[in-house]
Design a protein around this nucleic acid. Structure first.
Ligand SMILES: [Mn+2]
Ligand SMILES: [Mn+2]
Ligand SMILES: [Mn+2]
Ligand SMILES: [Mn+2]
Lengths: 225, 225
DNA sequence: TTGTTTATTTAGACTAGCCTAAATATCGTT
DNA sequence: AACGATATTTAGGCTAGTCTAAATAAACAA
């Protein structure tokens, strides 16, 4: 029944990007895709036409693109691979958390369902990757975790980091030196106005963080200790 | 100095196939490559011209193809990936030994040198994969293990399996049910003439094996127990 | 509402890899 | 030494995915 056609790596990358843009921006334009995928706009136009013909998106000229149910299912499948792999590489092989994204971006397209399953099992069927991003289930369920940017936390409040939304290795390495990971508890001490730097207590130490980075760190407030 | 250009998956597969044919047959013809890679002969002609232009092989029209030093280095690099991955998938994730070949065939092209290194470390820098095939070193050294086909062993002699040269999953599953793996000790009891079936003692049990399969199992004789 | 800026698509081209059919070279035999 | 069989290459074509330059539609502002 469910007819099964294999799909190219490029197609999977487009679907993933479309999924992320739908989440973050609501609508998905040609230009946004071109930017996200580092290709020229006409390349995107050509590809979304193909995706439309494959019934993975609905595409209306000049109106952007929307995932179909089949397209969303495939996107989530690839994202599941990606996030399981990231976690596996960190947990089982000790790769640094700033490198696993790039590695997973290539591996996600080639692992079998069998291998995916073994990895999930070995990890105890985890629900989040090393950056706090939720891992879709086999059935395609995702629960985006709650949380808002650390930059909007009120001074004097404690919170637990849920997610680090940036994937730039340099930034991740820097955050690691500060001890800022998902599940870590922080207290906001002071905040300069207009997106300026903030000073934080992390465990025993304290640090200063620019507004840029603080916007990428999602937190949930907790009771003071 | 060593200029580093990335190479496509197709190129890596050709280099690997050329390497294997050089080992097994001595010379590498267009037809042999076409057969090995399941492509049409003219596709091979086109590709070996490109490989020649890239200085990965020397190609003379109608005369076949020979790996250059650079080509051999690349082939061994991919083979190293393949065999490390096969062993890792069996050891660390418990995949059945008949499935790891197909999985490794896709993964070998996308893992980073960093990940390769972690895997090798985790495995304790092994020298052979689950089928007994030698794992080239980082520097490109391979030592083909000794051994001759089980089909040529003399009746009454004991031997240790060095290598199972077949990679057909069905055959490998069958051999697994008989307990025939590398490092396993067997004794040849009887042998029918003209490549006919042979009866073996494997541990406590005995079994019968067709000449076809016996030719793919490489052994080294040992003292009787 | 008209004109300008910006986003998007069309047109046309290119590369890597693959294919089939036809031409040609090599090899093994007589 | 020549012939037929076999191996190999050439010729020509196709798809996926990319690009730049040019045309056009949509959005915004006066
Ligand atoms: Mn999957
Ligand atoms: Mn992640
Ligand atoms: Mn390598
Ligand atoms: Mn193997």
């Amino acid at each position: 029944m469910t007819e099964f056609r294999p799909v190219s790596q490029a197609v999977e990358d487009y679907l993933k990007a479309i999924y992320r843009l739908e989440q973050r921006e609501g609508k998905v334009t040609t230009t946004a895709l071109a930017l996200a995928l580092h290709v020229a706009a006409p390349s995107v136009t050509a590809m979304v036409k193909r995706l439309h013909a494959m019934r993975l998106v609905r595409y209306i000229r000049y109106r952007g693109v929307v995932l179909t149910a089949a397209g969303r299912r495939m996107a989530l499948e690839v994202i599941r691979h990606h996030r399981l792999l990231e976690l596996y590489l960190v947990e089982a092989l000790g790769l640094p958390w700033d490198q696993v994204h790039a590695e997973a971006d290539r591996l996600e397209h080639v692992i079998s369902e069998e291998l995916e399953e073994r990895i999930a099992e070995r990890l105890g069927h985890p629900v989040a990757d090393p950056h706090g991003d939720p891992i879709p289930t086999k059935a395609g369920q995702v629960k985006e975790p709650p949380g808002f940017p650390l930059s909007e936390l009120n001074p004097g409040t404690a919170a637990v980091i849920q997610r680090v939304a940036d994937q730039d290795p340099a930034k991740l390495r820097y955050l690691a030196t500060l001890g800022l990971f998902p599940q870590v508890r922080v207290t906001l001490l002071e905040k300069a106005p207009f997106g300026g730097p903030m000073s934080l207590a992390v465990g025993e130490t304290r640090c200063t963080l620019g507004g840029e980075l603080a916007r990428q760190i999602l937190v949930v407030p907790v009771e003071a200790a």
